[in-house]
Design a protein around this nucleic acid. Structure first.
Length: 594
RNA sequence: GACCCCGUAGUUCAACGGAUAGAAUAGAAGUUUCCUAAACUUUAGAUAUGGGUUCGAUUCCCGUCGGGGUCACCA
């Protein structure tokens, strides 16, 4: 059997056009038939009317007749306006399912010899993770899995933002108000403890500003002169000098935070192949500035600051090194990118970073191109939209965030309540049940975050909990558990899966499932090209939906025809395998029972 | 102000320029002596606005209105 029915059809349509009209057509539209019409694939004829000088209906009729007579895969056709709807031979469907059923790793495409680095997560070490970070983590993790399924070798990296003024703010507040508190003594995860002091800093800082303003200072000046911000800046200078006490505090607090993050990553099933720390990389990039100056890509102003003029690219003039010789954000990023390249020599580089940094990445990539970096054309910013609350943007320092750990905990509780209500797993041991609740909570949460087009900003309303019914992760997990139940029963009754080569009349509900199964590799490919887990999410949902319809309509074990029983077991097995694979690409596990 | 992104059922999301704009949820009505009802079936409900291009526009182009973001010698 050819790779897809689609490929076979396209070839046959080309042949048909040549035979019927003695001409060739470069491109034509072949799409899945809308469900109100009979057929599987639809050939749209409108585009050909000019070239062939016939009416859309005539073209459809002529090609349809030719295909019905000559094509191996076409069983019949109907023409509605300019749409030629084609139905497919039962034997073709049997072939297709047979190929899928035999493929143990269906949906994983062959290696393409290319490697790609995906950088994501990149947390600040002064506060715990919130829902926005979860979207980033889920996206990065899923895109990495999708690229791997597309044949790439994938390196997942995380650049930890472990230095800078924001860290010093938490450190300062801890120095002033901490009284030697530790995660153990406070009963808090380390990242939450650091976050607590970040919030405390902000409170006091605001108070100090307000007081200065009351004394007659302007808001802007007060923000610069408040005692705590001056002290925090001093702390940063001490840190950069390597002052032992400051470094010790920094190491202690960061250690707490890493421990906390690790727990969250572990519980989400997210890992990295390589972690970079900004404290190691923040001085990088200066040699690139030198190089760029020599090449004439950059220029120096009187105050010694270094700039690049990107007006030709539609961007502005951009500072790349301060007058005092210290780095800015873009300097570091140039250096870090060079480091990544020298460490791994990947063919492509991806950054999963929010869309508020669109401009920054445009600048970064433009500079890399000007510098003639070999990887410059293979850099991509996967720019995703923010997760907003009904009240607006989440802000850690103001405490208006949906905390990642809290949310996961709540969802596990919801999963537990729902499961207990249904009472289907009363024989589970306590640990087994806990694992299931966690698996369902993650399924709901990850699916919720991944089903939306990454580019779009999304809204999360904490008042309304994330659903477990309908277009959700648990719906798909449930379908999987139900299929597994079927397969266990088949095994217990020694009913092996088998697909006849011919002579089996396929029911429309079965055909829908097979058709959808056949689309999977193409979906994996587009998801890889578009870096969009949403395409896989939607696919898994549709497949589950079709299977559920099939399940409701046809009985598997009570069919009098043993061929049908074996065929449906094979169909179920293929669905289970494909759902598991697709959910795997989303980083979501599926349960045997729920 | 300049630049970028976005406006689709009450709500959350879909729709390579293609047929009567799909789902889910909330609402109404059904389905369980039978393989897991976290399911299935039926029903009602939307393209912000004005032009243009096209056989055909939610999709492309221009304007208006509305929302978000960026324009730091912060990261």
């Amino acid at each position: 059997m050819s790779l897809t029915i689609e490929a076979a059809l396209k070839k046959d349509i080309e042949t048909a056009i040549e035979a019927c009209f003695q001409t060739t057509v470069e491109e034509f539209v072949l799409q899945p038939t809308k469900k109100e019409f009979e057929g599987t694939y639809t050939f749209v004829t409108f585009a050909l009317t000019k070239a062939l000088r016939r009416s859309p209906v005539q073209i459809g009729q002529t090609i349809g007749e030719y295909l019905a007579a000559h094509s191996q895969v076409v069983k019949g056709f109907n023409v509605v306006q300019g749409f030629l709807n084609l139905t497919i031979e039962d034997e073709t469907w049997l072939d297709v399912l047979s190929a899928i059923h035999q493929d143990a790793d269906y949906g994983t495409l062959p290696a393409n010899g290319q490697s790609v680095m995906v950088e994501f997560s990149s947390p600040n070490t002064n506060k715990p993770l919130h829902l926005g970070h979860l979207r980033n983590n889920c996206l990065g993790d899923s895109v990495a899995r999708i690229l791997k399924a597309n044949g790439y070798e994938v390196i997942k990296t995380c650049l930890v933002n472990d230095r800078g003024i924001h860290i010093c703010k938490s450190m300062l507040a801890y120095q002033k108000l901490g009284n030697g508190e530790t995660p153990a003594s406070a009963g808090l995860k380390g990242d939450h403890l650091a976050g607590k002091y970040y919030v405390l800093f902000d409170k006091e800082y605001k108070k100090q500003i307000a007081q200065l303003v009351a004394e007659g200072m302007s808001e802007e000046e007060a923000a610069k002169k408040a005692p705590w911000i001056l002290e925090a800046q001093d702390l940063l200078i001490q840190w950069e000098k390597g002052e032992p006490e400051t470094v010790a505090l920094w190491e202690q607090m960061n250690g707490w935070v890493y421990e906390g993050f690790q727990k969250t990553y572990d519980s989400m099933g997210i890992s990295f192949d390589k972690t970079y720390y900004e404290s190691d990389t923040y001085l990088l990039g200066k040699d690139i500035i030198e190089e760029g100056l020599k090449k004439g890509v950059f220029y120096k102003k009187e105050d010694n600051s270094v700039w690049i003029d990107l007006t030709e690219e539609g961007l502005d003039q951009k500072l790349v090194l301060r007058g005092n010789g210290t780095s800015v954000y873009i300097t570091q990023d140039l250096g870090t990118t060079e480091l990544k390249y020298s460490d791994f020599h990947n063919d492509r580089y991806m950054w999963v970073v929010g869309n508020e940094q669109d401009y920054h990445f445009n600048v970064l990539f433009a500079i890399l191109k000007r510098l003639g970096r070999p990887y410059a054309d293979e850099c991509f910013h996967l720019s995703y939209g923010m997760v907003d609350l009904p009240s607006g943007k989440m802000k850690s320092r103001e405490g208006t965030v949906v905390d990642a750990d809290d949310l996961l905990g709540q969802m596990a509780q919801t999963a537990e309540n729902r499961t207990r209500e249904l009472g289907k797993i009363e024989d589970f041991a306590s640990e087994e049940a806990q694992n299931l609740y966690h698996l369902l909570a993650l399924g709901a949460l990850k699916y919720f975050l991944l089903k939306v087009d990454p580019k779009k900003r999304m809204l999360f309303n904490p008042e309304e909990s994330i659903d477990f019914q309908g277009h959700t992760g648990p719906f798909i997990q449930y379908t999987y558990a139900r299929v597994r139940s079927i397969l266990r029963k088949a095994e217990a009754n020694a009913l092996a899966a088998a697909i006849p080569a011919e002579g089996y009349e396929i029911h429309p509900a079965e055909q829908d499932v097979i058709f959808h199964l056949s689309q999977y590799p193409v979906r994996v490919m587009s998801a890889g090209q578009e870096f969009s887990p949403a395409l896989i999410s939607l696919y898994a949902y549709e497949l589950a939906k079709f299977y559920n319809q099939f399940y409701a309509e046809l009985s598997i074990f009570s069919d009098p025809d043993p061929v049908a029983v074996q065929f449906r077991v094979a169909l179920s097995d293929s669905v289970a395998k494909t759902i598991r694979h697709a959910m795997g690409l989303l980083g979501i596990e599926v349960p045997e029972r729920m």
